[in-house]
Design a protein around this nucleic acid. Structure first.
Lengths: 145, 145
DNA sequence: TATTTTCCCACTAATCAAGTAGGAATGTTA
DNA sequence: TAACATTCCTACTTGATTAGTGGGAAAATA
């Protein structure tokens, strides 16, 4: 029951863009270097974010990417669902995947509870929250110097 | 982020044993038929449960399996961890798998919250709870007849 | 002894994860 | 305009994992 690199990297990319959210374009190369992820692989992941309109791209020299909206408008859940697909722990909970024994399946209740718990976490953290945490951490670091 | 059939089936097997917890032996063949799972595949799954001491086996004719302890002693989490392995959503949270950037990784906090939420659900449901739900359902069914 | 059952091990086919690779399209800059 | 930087697009690869199948030995019972 692991989140794949695709989803994890996507969140890190979005967070990277949020942290560098100056209006300027950020190159894949720079993100890849900062996040220590293969450029080519990142390209593919960011392509998904781009098609979904989560980021805006500018082609050509001095091009790159930036967030389409405010960091506060993106939850971790949105990003994961986009890149990972459904976050349901069993496919019975996915649209059009319901199994026949649903009515008499006690375990399904457990999976539903689990699903709710998962959503409760990932839908309640935005990129802005993560940015704030980073800044807090940096602030406390400065103090200690 | 799906739970595999192995984990799901294991829970269903244990619940099946709990529902038929009369002290008598239950054959793999019967569980397989009731749960609509391949006998051979079930064998492998139940072997894991057996090695871990979750079930007791009796070989030979009229043999089979039964729960080693009370249904209330088994949480869904125990069964899933045994058959699925760690339920941590990212491997950074697993023992001995910590990555180097943990200190500066804001996303790790999200994964930790997620992990807690997952454990909070699966460690708080026992087989006895599921049995009770089934009996409630059957009770209300009887009423409606 | 024949039958029933668990136990054990090897194999497989399909799918997915995690990239790699190459080059076209587009825009900037010298 | 030529060189360069960057996104964009598609195909390929390698290894692991999932979800089983299959055959038969070992143990117990009838």
């Amino acid at each position: 029951m692991k989140i794949s690199t695709k989803g994890r990297y996507a969140v890190r990319v979005m967070l990277d863009l949020a942290l560098n959210n100056t209006g300027e374009c950020i190159k894949v190369k720079d993100i890849a270097a900062r996040q220590d992820i293969s450029e080519k692989y990142l390209e593919q992941i960011i392509a998904v974010l781009n098609k979904a309109g989560y980021v805006k791209s500018v082609r050509g020299a001095q091009g790159g990417y930036r967030l389409a909206k405010d960091p506060g408008d993106y939850t971790v859940g949105m990003i994961l669902r986009l890149t990972e697909g459904s976050m349901a722990p069993v496919s019975c909970l996915d649209e059009g995947e319901e199994c026949e024994q649903c009515d008499t399946c006690e375990t399904l209740e457990v999976w539903k509870d689990l699903y709710r718990a998962i959503n409760g976490v990932i839908d309640n953290v935005t990129l802005a929250d993560l940015v704030a945490k980073r800044q807090q951490r940096e602030g406390s670091l400065d103090y200690s110097i």
